[in-house]
Structure formats: C-alpha cells, structure tokens
C-alpha cells in the first residue's frame, strides 16, 4: 500500500441558486432553489513517500477541495483516503502533526509581531521538544536565509520574505508531508528560485512528500517529475511530466527576421505568416526538425535574426484543457 492512497473520493457542494432580478430575488426569498456542484468526483491516485507531485488544473477544477480533503479539513461524501495508515478527517489531531500546509494567499503568521514569536507559539501547539525546536529553527533559518528578518514584525516584511517565513513556520514540526498551495504567488524571480531550491533540498534530504499546486507552471517544471492534472473534478492525467511534454509539446514557434521574400513549402510547417520584420512559422517537430528547416531556409534567403520559442508548459496545459474540453 502506498504512503498516500486516495480511492474514489467524491464531494458535492450544495449552493443556493442566485438569479438576477428583483422578482427572482423575491421568489427565492420564500423558496430556495439549490444547485449541486460536484467539486471532485471519483478521484483516485496514490503517492509514494518522498515524491513531489504537481497538482494542477484550472480555477475551480477541484484542487483546493482535494487539498482540503487530504489535509483533513473536509470529509468527502464518498470514497476513502488513507495517509500513513490514518484517515485525515477522522484522526484529525493525530494526523495534522504529520503535515505542514502553506497557503500562498493566507498567512499563518501573527501580523504585528516578529516571526520568531509565532514560532514559539507553534512550538507549544505542536508539542515540539526544546532540542528539536532549536535544531529545526537553526536549520530553517540557515536554509531559508531568515537570520535578518525573523525579528522584524511580519507586516514590515516583503512578500518574498514573508513567504520564506511562512514556509519555515509550517516545517517547524518536521512534517512528513508538505502541502504547498501556490507558494510562489507574487514573488520575484530571486525569491522564487530560493523557495524552489529549498523545496528541492527538503525533499531530497528529508524525504518529505510534497504536494504542490501552482498556476505558475515554471514551478511545476522545476520541481515535479510527476503531475496530476485535474479538471471539472476529475483526474485527467496522472504521470510523468516529460512524457506529457513529448506528446503535446511538439509545436515550436519560429520567428525569422529578414528583408527578403521567403517562399518555402515543406511538410511539418503548419503556418507561415508575414510580419513586419520577416516571418513567423509554426512547425511540428515530429515532421520536420529545426535544423532541417533552418537548412532549407538559409539556402534561400539571408537570415538576419532568429527566435525559437519553446512552447511553454502554459501552452501545453491550455492544449490539454482543449483536448479534454474543460
């Protein structure tokens, strides 16, 4: 049995229907109509200890619902979820000691006082022994570079500094599983890199299982080998990111700067567009390789400049969404 075992969990929410117009509002005052929204349906997957999972999907796909179920905040209508031998929503107090959760958009730090004070409270909340506390704190301060910011009231910290403190706060008790919900939202490139490196190292050295949701697909590419794609409450893809890439990421955009006129016909060239400075081509690398194409072009015209745009994982996901019609 895997470390995290999720079997066919479903969760439906009941929402009051809201219609526009005064008449409708009056009607619904007396007779409420409800609509049922299936946030997740029949979701199953298993995760081994020490994996990093990129959990992705568009807004409203059911990502947070799944995270909430896995972390024991919500209980599903159907299905079971066993993590390290426990059912999250049944053994709440025992279970949550094993997990750390970082919500990128919600702080767990006391706003008006320094981070270190919050740490001291967390020490008591998680019953961390003095030795463990000192060791973990020292370790986290070093790795997340917190030395200079841990004694400043949280409200005076920059977003990046605060996020580093947030992450440290959720790791003080040495959790075995770390949920990261949009951990790099709003961070600059340097802070992003720091956070990513830290997460990588944490996973490598402590075998912490990490479940990461993010809309920033560069996070996912940098950290996760395996992704679970969810849309409209269903698992659409579960597997290796590279496999997915080679399957979907076959299109490349090539911009060529030239003053001459280019006439070229070849299989693999999907579109050709004249631009102000030259041409934009979209090619399918399964049918024509880039070098082959460039060879052909350079025989005909002088290329002044060239720009090859790797189809980003963002586009890949957009394509996936289109494929699955979500």
């Amino acid at each position: 049995m895997s470390f995290i075992e999720v079997r066919q969990i479903s969760k439906t929410f009941k929402l009051a229907k809201k219609k526009s117009g005064l008449k409708e509002a009056f009607k619904s005052f007396f007779k409420r109509e409800y609509k049922y929204i299936e946030a997740v349906s029949d979701i199953s997957f298993s995760i081994e200890k020490g994996e990093i999972i990129g959990y992705i999907g568009p807004n409203g796909a059911g990502k947070s619902t799944t995270i909430k179920i896995l972390s024991g905040i919500l209980n599903p209508d159907r299905g079971e979820c066993i993590i390290d031998g426990m059912t999250p929503w049944k053994d709440r107090k025992k279970f949550v000691k094993k997990i750390g959760v970082v919500f990128g958009q919600r702080s767990q730090l006391w706003w008006d006082i320094p981070t270190e004070d919050t740490f001291l409270l967390l020490k008591d909340i998680y019953d961390i022994t003095d030795d463990d506390y000192q060791r973990n704190k020292k370790d986290l301060i070093e790795r997340l570079n917190l030395e200079d910011i841990i004694n400043i009231p949280v409200r005076q910290l920059s977003l990046g500094q605060r996020m580093r403190c947030e992450i440290a706060a959720s790791l003080l008790h040495n959790p075995e599983i770390l949920f990261l919900d949009e951990p790099t939202i709003g961070l600059d490139a340097v802070s992003k890199q720091l956070v990513r490196d830290f997460i990588k190292r944490l996973n490598k050295e402590k075998q912490t299982t990490i479940i990461l949701t993010s809309h920033d697909t560069s996070d996912i590419t940098a950290l996760a080998k395996r992704i679970i794609l969810i849309g409209k409450g269903k698992v659409l893809y579960d597997g290796n990111l590279r496999v997915l890439k080679s399957k979907y990421d076959t299109e490349k955009n090539i911009s060529i700067k030239t003053k001459e006129k280019l006439v070229i016909k070849s299989k693999g060239i999907k579109t050709k567009k004249k631009t102000r400075e030259g041409y934009d081509l979209v090619i399918d690398t399964n049918e024509i390789s880039i070098s082959e194409l460039l060879n052909k072009i350079s025989k005909k015209i002088t290329i002044e400049d060239i720009d090859i745009e790797n189809n980003s994982i963002d586009n890949l996901i957009v394509k996936l969404y289109e494929d699955y019609k979500i």
């Binding site: 905040i73 709440r92 107090k93 025992k94 919500f103 919600r106 767990q108 909340i125 998680y126």
Partner: peptide
C-alpha cells in the same frame, strides 16, 4: 469568512 478556521483545523489542538 476569511478562511482562518481551516488553518485552526490544521493544528493538533
């Protein structure tokens, strides 16, 4: 409303 209750549920107390 602000979702702080979720955070409390994540703590072993």
């Amino acid at each position: 409303i602000q979702g702080g209750f979720d955070r409390l549920l994540l703590r072993p107390k």
